[in-house]
Amino acid sequence: MQNLPAGFETLEKFADGWVLPDAVARMTRRQGSSIEEIRGFYDAMLPQGEAALAYLRQYPLGALPPEGERLLKLMLALAEIAPAVEWYNGPQVTDGFPVQRIHYLRQIPDNIAQA
């Protein structure tokens, strides 16, 4: 079954684990992953990043086909895990305040038109 738009076949194997409902789920996923797993996802996503954004730029939020929405969610997961790779070399903020103690009261929906 094809989960992602054509051209993003190399990312198919990540759709199961990294397409998540919202920012809180992405944060939890990052905290519960090893840096090796995160880095595997990062390394696969990064070379496709520009192409993914070029694809996404064609659509307003709310008008993405299902496979496009999944690609958006993979990119949002990339946003969540990027600091783990680029700043901390670990899932958590180095010596940081535990992010588990943060409660989200409001998030921006992943795929609803904005005005």
């Binding site: 496009g68 949002l76 946003a79 990027a82 600091p83 901390y88 921006i108």
Partner: peptide
């Protein structure tokens, strides 16, 4: 557009961390 949604999430995540 949908690409800019990624920019929003990047802004929030970086700031939060």
């Amino acid at each position: 557009n949908a690409a800019q949604r990624f920019g929003q999430e990047n802004t929030m995540v970086e700031f939060r961390d």
